[in-house]
Nucleic acid binder design. Structure first.
Lengths: 248, 248
DNA sequence: TAGTGGTCTAGACCACCCC
DNA sequence: GGGTGGTCTAGACCACTAC
């Protein structure tokens, strides 16, 4: 008698079929090699004796873990793993280069808008004053990686809207306005890809993302920019160096 | 003639039905108030004229965003939002208290193991030497929040296995071994809840998580611990302060 | 025991890519 | 056109909770 092993009893780990399926799929990924093609979803369903729905659930999880990528009309392929980006006050460009990746940045939008109450508070300007909103698509080696939306106070940086796109934003701030970044508060959380995100990143709606929100200050502690970005959760991880608050 | 609006053309944002459903569900959440109950999934499917599968997909997304919680045999409830935790070299306990939450920590496991090559390298001990592995379940106000697995070199901290659980680990390290943390490298990425995670956290398998990996060093730059934790992505966000690498 | 959420199925149809 | 992934459906059965 006695419930022996595998009883899946209460408070124990239950393993759904879609989760167990991942083991089999992972070995297919290993066989395929980086970027190699996997069998189609219908073929996988037949091979493992499950429904296509269950296969897709397992594939979606593996995709979220960065182990494979799916391309709509094309197929499923072994994944490329995650890129590590350092959380620091440096440019995206420098950062990607240090990983041997070729970074590009497309300016999707540069518009002047009127500061809403929340943005006004964050940028320390009066409500309704002019704010420059920049929207960029960051890519590495041609693959879209992140969408970044920045807001800067035009009252502090008159004419900035004419100067973006030329060179690095932080370079422009220093050369034309004598402003240098001192510190920033960066928040990280999970999020899901919106339809707009998915369209730009070649993602699926609802894909797991990392949302970062950066509030940057200059060396005089005045707010300089407020940035919200979403990074593909299957392609990125972030690393930060923490120092002791009580240094001895 | 002429595709007017709503044509959902190429390269534009397509909005799947499950995503659009979220708007309707969000207003139900608002009506319910924090912690309030929502109608059952079958009732929602009928009300919105979609299949239960589609309702569940939308609910799963809202859950990942922290807007609601589901309890197995019980029901679906309006969510509690996210807690912000600072990335710093301080204890979980201090951190939660500063948010007015009552933190508890259950020691699930404290075992001595033999260092695998990767752990040995991280802790700067020889392969095969003794390592203490601690596994904790962190809760706030009674709700499970995170699972934390730490590893410390017993060769540097003899007898440590007898002293854990009494008080804070960092306190013990200081009082008995004269060791104080100097800095740490912390990595953050998304992950999915394993069956074991889900069982401990009262989560669903595959739920979105934040995985942190911390490599801590003492004031002499010697490695002290290596910690891997998973936090519920629907309950947590992290914030870090970044400082300029060129302080001029 | 009745109701709730959790898993799985088989099949339909659409959108996209490539030949 | 034919294949691939993306979305949605209707329904079955299981596991858990509350009564």
């Amino acid at each position: 008698m006695a419930d022996i092993l595998g009883d899946n009893g209460r408070k124990t780990a239950r393993t759904p079929k879609h989760w167990a399926l991942k083991d089999g799929l992972v070995s297919l990924v290993a066989d395929a090699g980086p970027g190699g093609p996997l069998p189609g979803e219908r073929a996988l369903a037949e091979r493992f004796g499950v429904s296509r729905t269950t296969v897709r659930k397992a594939l979606t999880e593996l995709m979220a873990e960065g182990r494979l990528t799916r391309v709509h009309g094309s197929g499923t392929f072994a994944g490329a793993g995650k890129v590590t980006q350092r959380l620091q006050l440096s440019s995206y460009t420098e950062d990607m280069r240090s990983h041997g990746l070729n970074p590009t940045s497309a300016l999707l939008e540069a518009t002047v808008e009127i500061a809403e109450p929340d943005v006004a508070a964050l940028l320390a300007v009066s409500e309704g004053s002019a704010v420059l909103r920049l929207r960029r698509l960051r890519s590495a080696d041609g693959e879209p990686m992140a969408i970044e939306t920045s807001r800067l106070p035009l009252s502090r940086f008159p004419g900035l809207e004419e100067r973006v796109g030329d060179t690095s934003l932080y370079g422009v701030l220093w050369e034309h306005y004598g402003v240098q970044l001192g510190h920033a508060e960066e928040t990280i959380e999970t999020a899901l890809a919106t339809p707009a995100d998915a369209a730009l990143l070649g993602n699926e709606v609802g894909a797991v993302m990392l949302r970062l929100s950066r509030h940057s200050f200059d060396t005089d502690n005045r707010p300089v920019e407020w940035v919200r970005s979403v990074y593909r959760g299957d392609r990125y991880k972030f690393v930060a160096t923490l120092v002791s608050p009580r240094p001895q």
